[in-house]
Design a protein around this nucleic acid. Sequence first.
DNA 1: AGCATAAGCTAACGGCGTTCGCATAACAGA
DNA 2: TCTGTTATGCGAACGCCGTTAGCTTATGCT
Lengths: 279, 279
Amino acid sequence: MLSEWCSHNAYPCRVHEPKTTTTAGELPPTDPAKTRQTEPRPGTAAWWLARESEPARQRRRRALTLDAVLDAAMTLLDTRGAAALTMRNIADALGCTQASLYRHVRNREELVTLLIDRAIGPASSTPPDDLDWAEKAAWSARRFREHLLRHPGVASLLRGTERLGPNSLAGVQYSLELLIGAGLSPRLASAAASSLATFVIGSVHLNLGLDMSDPEEIRHRRLLYRSRDTATFPLLVQHADTLAEVSSDDEFEVGLHALLTGFRSLITNGPAELPTDGR
Amino acid sequence: MLSEWCSHNAYPCRVHEPKTTTTAGELPPTDPAKTRQTEPRPGTAAWWLARESEPARQRRRRALTLDAVLDAAMTLLDTRGAAALTMRNIADALGCTQASLYRHVRNREELVTLLIDRAIGPASSTPPDDLDWAEKAAWSARRFREHLLRHPGVASLLRGTERLGPNSLAGVQYSLELLIGAGLSPRLASAAASSLATFVIGSVHLNLGLDMSDPEEIRHRRLLYRSRDTATFPLLVQHADTLAEVSSDDEFEVGLHALLTGFRSLITNGPAELPTDGR
DNA sequence: AGCATAAGCTAACGGCGTTCGCATAACAGA
DNA sequence: TCTGTTATGCGAACGCCGTTAGCTTATGCT
């Protein structure tokens, strides 16, 4: 399981900047958002760029590498879930102290950002060649979803971050290939690709702690729908049995199909129907 | 701003169950998942049902109601963000202690679950009558998204929970009205409605801490795309400028349009094209 | 009037992310 | 080979978090 997660390039350990100790009488930085313009927030384009331009110094000592930290975090995430992904647990798994982790990672957010990109790596795989573009897109989307469902911890961390890491970019490149090849403009292809990704991630994300196929849960849902007020929720009461049994797989397949159908019509009819395309 | 959040029915305070102190020699519960079958997890259908069937006892004393707690939590969430939504801060805002909150709420998860449903209330509003069903759906989806964008804290809490509260159900009822009225079967309408909701929530969720229209961020993205390896990421490099400027609004509009187009084709062509509909 | 109890408070627990200061091992240049 | 520099580990602590136990007090019912 461990070898599933590919490692990327190694980075030097973090330097321990003296935090610019404000000497007595000196004003503290007035606008932290401005003065901290160095060290951008993890996940932003600026952060990825800065990270790459850092010189790869040689590492020393007993080699607790960033990759080792991420490996430990990854297995922890897979085996014990997102809630167990604490600095303490990672350090314990590695046999070091929490403080040591901060030599390789600025903070937990940065660790998670790196982890997400690494975890997304094995999700992208090329579909069979004899499919048309829409079938290929559907194939990839399903694979991506299955990967996330297999690793719920990863899915629960996917949030609020642009997907700009090397592994994520590979997915973007592939989607663009598909959609531009199918006839969409680069701009529309980009928007379509990210809306598809949004849908896949969202559909996994919103059903995380849930087993919608659990018969007990279905029973409770049916009971809930049935017992609503008929006047205000007529359809819920009327179709309680049907609604209670709709699974997240159904939701995904219907949404996926609809999105791809929509993309196809966008190709044949052109983007004329998009509201207020200019902005 | 406070009055935007409608309150629902008041509930009795939580009783302080003595935790069934295991008398000496008695075995502790072997399988907690089984023995805790009472008190289901917040957000599940069973939990909403149990909550309703609780008798509404009269409240006493200086009236720190559940509604007051949720009001305080809501304003806190709106003004200081999700990270500031701590039991301590809520208690401080109310002028009480943290422990008092637990008289009205089992734990933080329950509070958040109630908060989410309450926060979703004002998001649903009926569109103008002279639109066709697809335009109405688009109108509602945009309103929902705008509401979430105005209240990012709410959006960041929307996760992993079924949307079964009274306010959420109102949205479901309305979507079903629209889609069944348009000609979809109840089952397909339900799947379509939740995939649409998933897309709206997901698209807000994944762009939470981000301002994709920030020129500085766009510049960095362009730089990032441009500096990729041309051999592995040809399209990213080639269309760097275009890609960097695609906004989350673009993504949303394209996805929304595609979904609705897909639904429409599902109505005219029937569900024959859905893969493996039977399960 | 008296009682049961709902509903507040004080104080504490363990766990979390993070930082400070120090120790030490590895390399660089002499 | 020695020496100074620096990367990289560690111990201990800080402040915040959610949660609980045990108490006190005010309330409404009989």
